[in-house]
Structures are given as C-alpha cells and as structure tokens.
Design a protein around this nucleic acid. Structure first.
Length: 822
DNA sequence: ATATACACGGATCCCCTATTTCC
DNA sequence: GGAAATAGGGGATCCGTGTA
C-alpha cells in the first residue's frame, strides 16, 4: 500500500479484458512522476415517461438487464440497473441508470432500449475520461490524497514496465486534499527549422529545446564555434534520435510549441517516418497521434502537448492589440521581446548561410514560446480547473465549448441528466432560424464633446441571464402565473422564475469573478488576475453559447430574450440620465456616455446609485470614469453620426480609440498613423489648428513622393481558398499572383500589397484597384491619387468636418497648384 | 464546423442609360 | 442612320474588420 499526494495532469484510457480503465498521469508532491490506474463502470440513462407504474419499471429494468451485445471482439453486457429520481431540463423525472461492461458498445445497447415507456436515453455521448472525471471527481490540476497499491510487472499486461514513470499504482481510495502545495509543471518548449514547409520536399535542419536551466539546439547542419548549446550530428536521423532522447531524459509534463499542432509536430513525425525511425515522444514510447479534420491536433501519450497558438487564439486574441498572432508580434506585446532578426526562409534558399545566427534564431523561438507559456500558464490552469477537462482539451478549447464543459461537469450538483449533442438535422434546423435582434446602439450626433462620464453594465448579458432566469431548462411553452416575459420573433416568450441550472451556474461564476477581481485589486498577483480573467471569459461565452447552433443547451428564445432584456434595461437607464439633465451622447450594448454639462461628477454618481437600486436581480451599472474630451464623426455614407467609431481622452492624457481606421489593419500605415496623430492633436488641444497643419505636411510629403512603400502597404487576410471568391478584390488578385510565383497562400494569411500607378495609361478600361495592386517587392510608383482619395482623405475627412473643414478641397487645391507648377 | 448581433466602409459586380465609335 | 462598344452612375452584394 502506498499513500501519497497527487495531482492529475494527463488522462488516457485503455481496455483490459473488455473493461475500460483510466490511466492518469501526474506528479506526487515530492515531484515523482506517477501513473494511476483506476476505473468506473460506464453507464447511461434511460428517462421514463411520466406516470409509468413501479411494477412496469421493474419489468423494464429486468429486460434491460438481460441485454447482451455480441460483437466480433467482445460481448458487452448490462451489469446492473438502478432507478433514480433525477432532473432533466429542470423537470423531475424517473430514470434508469444502466451500467454496461464496455463503453464501445453503448450505442448498440441503447438501440435495444426502444420500449414505449422510455422517453429518451441520455449521456451515451460523453467520452470515458469525461465520465471518469465526473464520477470519481478526480479533476485535473487539483490535489488528491491517494491510497493505492503498487502494480507488479505482470498486471494489466505489463503496463508498469512499459511506462517511463516512477510508479504505476492502482487506486484504492482517492480524496480531495484541503491544503495543497503550489504546482509548477515541468515544461519544455520546442521549435524546428526546416528547409521546406512540406516534409516531402525538405528536411528538419534544426530543433531547439528550452526549459528551466536547459537550452539546446540539435542540428546536422553547419558548425558552431560560439554557442555551447548547439549539438551537431551526422545526419537528420541521428539528430532526431538525439532530440527524442533529450525529451525523454528531461521528462517534461508539458511539451509546448507555437503552431506545433499544424507544423512542428506533424513535420517531425513525417521526417521520422522517412528516416525509418520512431518518433517515440510518449512516456510509453509511442509516437504522437494526429486527429483528422480541419483542425489537426497532435497528441503525445503521458505528456501534454500544448500548441500555445491555439490557446492564445481562443482565449487571448480578443484582448491583444497585435494584428496577427505570429510568435513575433505576440511576444512583443506580452513579453516585450522579439524574435532574432533573421530571415530563415531566405536562408534555406541561400548559398551561404550564417549558421550562428540561424542557431540563435532557432533557440530564441523556443525561448519565446517557453516564456509565453509561463505567462499564459495561470490562465490555462485556471480555465482547466473551472471546466474540469484534461489540459490537452482545455488548452485548445473555444470559449463556447469551455462553457458547455463547465455545465457538463456541474450537472451532477443539480441532479441533472446531461442533454445530448444535437444531431446534424437539428443543427441544420437551428442554423436556418432567422437572426434575432441584438444589441441597442445609440445614434450619436457628430461633434467634439467635453467632460464625458462613461458607465457600463458589469457582465451585461451574464447578469441578464441570471436576473431573468434565461435558459433552455427554464423556458416555458406558455405563460404561467408568474413568468419572466422575454421576446423572440417579436412575440412574447416565457421563462420560469424557479432558478435553473445555467442561470445558477452563471450566478456562481459572476460572483467568483467579482471575488477574484476584488482579491486582485487588494493584492495584485498573477493567480487572482488569471482567475478573474478565466471567469470573465467563460461568463462572456454563456450568452453566445445559448444561441449557438451546436450547443447541447441551445435555446434561441433565451438568447433572443437576453438581448431583449439588455436593450430594455439600457434604454431605461439612458432615459433616466436624460430625465435628470444628463445628455447622453453615445451607448453601445452595455455602455452609456453622458456629458456632464453643468452637472458634477458627484451628481452623476448619485444618479448612478438611484439607477442601481432599481435594476433587477444582480444587474449593476458601473462607473468607468471621466473623459475630458471625446469625438464622434459622421458616417461616410450619409450625414448622420457613425456608430462604433469614437475617440476619447482622459485626465491623464490617455487616449482610447474605437473603430476608427487607426485601429483597422486593412488600412495602410500612413492613413492609420496620420489619423491617429490628428485624433491625438484634436483631443489634447480641443481644436483643429495643429491637426490641420499636420495634415498639410503629410499631404505634401505624399505628393512629393517622400512616403516609403512600407507605409503604403495594405494588408488583407485571405479568408478562404482563392477559387471560392465571388468578388475578385485586390487581395485575391495578389494572392493569385503569389501562388503563381510559388509563394505560400494559405487560408488565414495576411496578403500584403500596395497600389501603383498604372504603367499603361492608354488602357481605357475602367481602372480597377486590383489591376493596380502590386506585391511589396514589385517595383512601381505609388498611385498618388489612390492614396490621397482612398486612404488619407477618407480617414481624415469626417474628423475635420467636425470643425467645418473640407479636406477634399484642401487636398484638391494643392493638387491644382501642382498641376500649374507642372 | 465549433459563441451572438450590430456596424462601417472599400471594392467589385451588375444593371441601366448616355455617349462615342464604327460601318 | 443605326448597331455595337464604351463610359459612367448608382445600388446591391461581397468581403474584411471592427465594437460590444
């Protein structure tokens, strides 16, 4: 017997003698690597129709117990059945819990249960690991007190021998540990350099590894006099073997890369295959396995392979300022560090190669990946703990599926049987639904305003879901004595006032978020910040989740009503501000901007208190702060105020720009920087004088052809295969040309181009922008007219119009003068 | 395949009419 | 003079990218 404290990191399962077992890899509190073997009996539910007599139920149970499935490899039996009082979609039900020997035949067993008294079957679509975590409550990244027996070398077909761990144990008892040590995973970051992106055409030239007190570059190319971390080998095969051994020796819990699901890992796997060796990275000596489908994932047994890009894309990207999620840009923003300035792609094609620089470059990528991982770890870890799915999944999860997993892992607390995933037909039906009305956006009056107080509802949609009890389970098909009355398709729709599972869960999350935020404000530390972040991310996903066609708990009436109640409440608040002498200048979804005018900040806060007292449930309006100036402009197509476009400056001079071209990556640097500068000048000075002078210098510079091409490059993302475009925009045309040149044109790539003057003026065909678009390295004179009329003027015009300045005339006037000069 | 709606604005597409070109 | 080609206006649509 062994007693130890244990933390689960990775989960796997295997069949032995027709029974499934969970294999849980983790660490003991003394840092030993442990594998626990444990099991549960798989089960699913048969929900009975209301009013079935006990005697009848007994008879059904007996019949179910006799079910046997004979397949080629095994016989699956029903082990036992139990009758339970459960809830399904909030309604009390009687349900038979059906235990079976093997999960693989669950669908066949289910098919046998077609008695008229059975309403439906459920929880047959949860995988073994999820079920195991729910049943045994052995959650990832929580500590447990384990009592277990050591396996000898023969048990379970010799599993103890095949695994590279310190101990393999069979669980006797496992209990949560109240006070637990801090867990820091052993992490190794890796990155490869290849002579071609296609493993069929190129080789792996080098592989770098970086961990705590550990740095290595494995290569068979070049020589290093400078760097001790470079290790040379004879050929690719030898290098790969050394890399595999190094990973095995270091024995990390987590192997992380950047885009390693999509490139590094599959590339290595293919190169290993071509070298006729095994890429034995798993703790059992197994090779990585890849999921099929569009989003490929690479799994390594016993070590968690985390593609950091996936996590950053799903969880962080909306909070990042970067224009792409490239390692360089993300590192620069989050770490203030960059990649080594070296063109690896060019190097693979060059005759002479600066190998020392190449090694540095390769290692730096692993260093950045490692540092980014460490920065993201508190968030990854908190999200994992909240949704209770293995790290491999939680690090790749989208927020909607994170929310669903939270529901799945919490259902038992509510005595709820879990709803099934929708069938394809259901999904198609849901997708065909018309859109419901969303947020309210206030039509601003263009102008420059002073002393603007900003307010926003905290967790607007989340708090609406809680306050009005909006969910699938609480949705009613008709009005009851007391119902919340929402709206869908312009008709009332009803929700019970008896608290439902999802609203209750949301309430807990919002409360936990509030606590984590308060804790962070009191004592700023990465853990409380990550907790606050994680709860915020998941809470924000709940509203979208209920309106998402793929959701188990899809409820478009709830989603529509959430938007409806949000609109009602914000409109009411706007009204109250107006009635109390505060002019509202803007509002979008959950925020309200008012000008103080003759009122003081204190007056506004007093009114806020009053508003808050009248808000339903947990809804709350917060004070965001005071802005000294703000500008709203006219829509370009029309003479009224543009929504979702404004700029503010606070007392400290900090500027907040929303929606303007400045923040849009599909405008050229010149237009963005010019607009940014002009907004800055206007907001700081409160007038247009300096801004106008600045604008004139830029226009002159442009006309004098002093602007470098790099400031004129327009970047547009390729969102689908070139052939699928109905409209041949400039970026599509450029992408085609790139393809002809043999350059990569993958979906998701940013296509870069600039607009040049056409060489052949005789071509009278109406000049399309795409015909003038050129690749950045294609020579040409930039098209002055285009950059003036399609970039600078459009981005400035409406700002200057606030001061009654006609930018177009300004620019044209100059142009005429130039023509005369000419 | 993988949360929602609202919104802006460039560029193309496409239809229509006016003008130019050609025989 | 009449048919065909071309230019240009303008709305619809496509497309990408923001805000919340």
């Amino acid at each position: 017997m062994v007693d130890l404290n244990f933390i689960p990191i990775d989960y796997d399962y295997f069949d032995f003698n027709g029974t499934p077992f969970a294999k849980i890899i983790g660490r003991s509190d003394t840092g030993k690597r442990i594998c626990l073997i444990d099991t549960i009996v798989p089960y699913f539910w048969a929900i009975l129709k209301p009013g079935v007599k006990d005697k009848k139920i007994k008879a059904i149970q007996k019949r179910i117990q006799d079910i046997q499935i004979h397949s080629e490899k095994r016989i699956t039996k029903v082990l036992k059945t139990e009758l339970h009082e459960k809830k399904f979609l909030e309604k009390p039900v009687k349900a038979i819990k059906i235990f079976i020997t093997n999960l693989k035949d669950i669908h066949d067993v289910r098919a046998e249960i077609d008695y008229p008294e059975i309403d439906k079957t459920r929880e047959y679509d949860l995988n073994f690991i999820t079920k195991y975590i729910i049943e045994r409550k052995v959650k990832p990244l929580f500590w447990y007190k384990v009592n277990a027996t050591m396996l000898d070398n023969q048990e379970f077909g010799g599993i103890a021998q095949s695994l590279n761990v310190d101990m393999v144990l069979k669980v006797e008892t496992i209990d949560t540990l109240e006070k637990y040590p801090k867990f820091v995973p052993k992490v190794l970051a890796f990155d490869i350099e290849a002579s071609d992106l296609d493993p069929g055409k190129g080789e792996t030239w080098m592989i770098s590894l970086y961990g705590k007190n550990y740095e290595k570059v494995f290569t068979f190319k070049g020589k290093s006099k400078k760097h001790k971390y470079v290790q040379n080998y004879e050929d690719e095969e030898e290098m790969l073997e050394a890399f595999i051994k190094a990973v095995d020796d270091y024995d990390p819990d987590i192997l992380t890369g950047y885009f390693s699901d999509g490139f590094d890992l599959p590339f290595l796997r293919e190169r290993a295959k071509r070298n006729k060796i095994k890429l034995a990275l798993g703790i059992d000596g197994s090779q990585p396995t890849f999921s099929r489908g569009a989003q490929r994932t690479g799994k390594i047994k016993g070590r968690v392979h985390i593609d950091l890009l996936r996590f950053i894309r799903n969880a962080y990207s909306q909070y990042l300022q970067t224009e792409t999620l490239s390692l360089n840009e993300v590192s620069n923003e989050l770490l203030g560090e960059k990649k080594v300035n070296f063109d690896a792609f060019a190097a693979t094609k060059a005759k002479t190669i600066d190998w020392e620089k190449f090694y540095e470059y390769n290692l730096q990528d692993s260093i950045l990946t490692y540092k980014l991982f460490m920065k993201a770890w508190p968030d990854i870890s908190e999200i994992t703990k909240i949704i209770q799915e293995p790290l491999f999944n939680s690090s790749r999860t989208t927020m909607a599926s994170a929310f669903e997993n939270l529901v799945i892992h919490s259902a038992d607390k509510f005595n709820e049987i879990i709803e099934k995933r929708p069938h394809e037909r259901e999904i198609a039906e849901r997708r065909s639904q018309p859109r419901y009305v969303g947020a309210f956006v206030f039509q601003p009056v263009p102008g420059l305003y002073e002393n603007i107080a900003f307010f926003d509802f905290s967790s607007m949609y989340g708090s609406v879901i809680v306050s009005y009890n909006l969910s699938r389970g609480t949705h009613q098909d008709r009005k009851h004595k007391s119902s919340f009355i929402g709206e869908y398709k312009e008709k009332p729709t009803y929700f019970s006032k008896e608290k439902g599972m999802i609203p209750q869960l949301m309430e807990i999350i919002i409360d936990k978020r509030r606590l984590a935020k308060a804790e962070y404000n009191k004592d700023p530390n990465p853990i409380s910040k990550a907790r606050s972040n994680a709860f915020k991310l998941i809470a924000n996903a709940a509203y979208g989740y209920q309106g998402f066609f793929g959701a188990r708990y899809y409820c478009i009436e709830a989603a529509s009503s959430t938007a409806y109640f949000a609109r009602e409440n914000i409109k009411k608040a706007i009204d109250t501000f107006e009635k109390n002498g505060f002019k509202v200048v803007y509002s979008d979804t959950d925020s309200i901007a008012t000008v103080l005018g003759k009122k003081s900040e204190k007056d506004a806060l007093n009114l806020l208190d009053k508003i808050n007292k009248k808000l339903p449930g947990i809804m709350a309006l917060d004070y965001e702060g005071l802005f000294t100036r703000g500008i709203w402009v006219t829509k370009r197509t029309g003479d009224f105020g543009a929504k979702k476009k404004y700029a503010l400056i606070d007392k400290k001079g900090k500027i907040k720009i929303r929606g303007f071209e400045t923040v849009r990556r599909d405008w050229c640097r010149l237009a963005r920087d010019t607009q940014n500068k002009i907004l800055n000048l206007i907001l700081t000075t409160g007038d247009d004088k300096q801004a106008l002078e600045y604008l004139k210098t830029i226009i002159k510079k442009l006309k004098d052809r002093k602007i470098p091409i790099k400031d004129l490059i327009i970047k547009t993302q390729l969102k689908k295969p070139i052939s699928e475009y109905k409209s041949q925009g400039p970026h599509v045309t450029i992408a085609k040309r790139m393809k002809e040149k043999g350059l990569p044109t993958d979906i998701g790539m940013l296509i870069e181009y600039y607009i040049a003057e056409p060489e052949n003026f005789k071509n009278k065909k109406r000049a399309l922008v795409r015909d003038k678009a050129r690749l950045p390295d294609e020579p040409g004179k930039y098209d002055l007219d285009y950059y003036l009329n399609n970039q600078i003027i459009p981005s400035i015009e409406n700002i200057m119009a606030v001061f009654k300045i006609n930018t177009k005339e300004l620019a044209d006037g100059k142009k005429q003068k130039n023509l005369f000069d000419f």
